Amino acid sequence: MRTRLLAATLTALAAVSLAACSSSGSSSGKATAAAGSPTTVAATPSDASTSSAAATPATSAPSTSATADGTTAAPGATAAPAGSSPGADGSAPAKPAPPADAGLPAKPDSDLTGKVVAALNAIDPAIVGGKPDQVVEQARKQCQSMYQFPKDKAKLIELANQHFTSPDHPQGFGPDTAAKINDALRTTLCPSPR
């Protein structure tokens, strides 16, 4: 008697656990209703024969699982989270956010650093201002901006004026020079936009 009661209780707990993990609203309600009767019956020891009979539907419940669209999956398959499958609510699944360093090129070697510095010096020597390491870091940040805003020329000019400043040009070098800086970086340091 106790063995049957214990088996019915464990089966009911397993069914309740599966119902709690289910992500589909309609299938979790069915599983909870099916699992609810063995739990209630198993709580009363005088109805041990009823608990073993009620445990039979709950034992077969774990063999299949409901999917997000309400169909039944094969035994052993797990149900997909609601909204994760394309078309579940008529929209595409959410696109994961890009990493924080997306578009940031690796630190250039000495040859590439020389090319970047030479290209910027050709535009205006004040851009480099005798600080090649600093200007290369600013160029890398501008490359990341080019990756993030590949088609927004006005934004890229604004960001170039923020990244490239000097004591004589605290607000940047102006829109024409900023556009030239962007062009120079595209041909030297920055990877092609996506």
Rank of each mutant, 00 (worst) to 15 (best):
A54M: 08
R2P: 07
A97Y: 04
P193T: 14
T50F: 09
R194C: 00
C143G: 01
E158Y: 08
S28P: 00
K155T: 13
G103A: 07
T113A: 12
P93M: 15
T177N: 04
T39I: 13
M1S: 08
G174R: 08
G90L: 07
T64V: 10
L5N: 05
D47K: 13
G70W: 05
I181W: 05
S166D: 03
S27C: 07
A19E: 08
V135D: 07
P75E: 06
S145F: 02
T165D: 02
T72D: 10
S63Q: 11
T50I: 07
A53I: 09
A97G: 13
A92R: 14
A160V: 07
G25C: 01
T44M: 03
F164N: 08
A77T: 14
T177K: 15
L104H: 06
K141Q: 11
A68K: 02
G83S: 10
P193Q: 04
M146W: 02
K107Q: 06
A80N: 08
A100K: 05
D176L: 12
L5Y: 07
G25T: 10
D101C: 00
P125D: 10
A77H: 10
L185S: 05
E137F: 01
P93I: 10
V41T: 15
L159E: 14
A73V: 03
P191D: 04
A184I: 07
M1T: 03
S46N: 03
G103M: 06
K151C: 00
G36V: 02
D176R: 05
A42R: 01
P45G: 06
A184W: 09
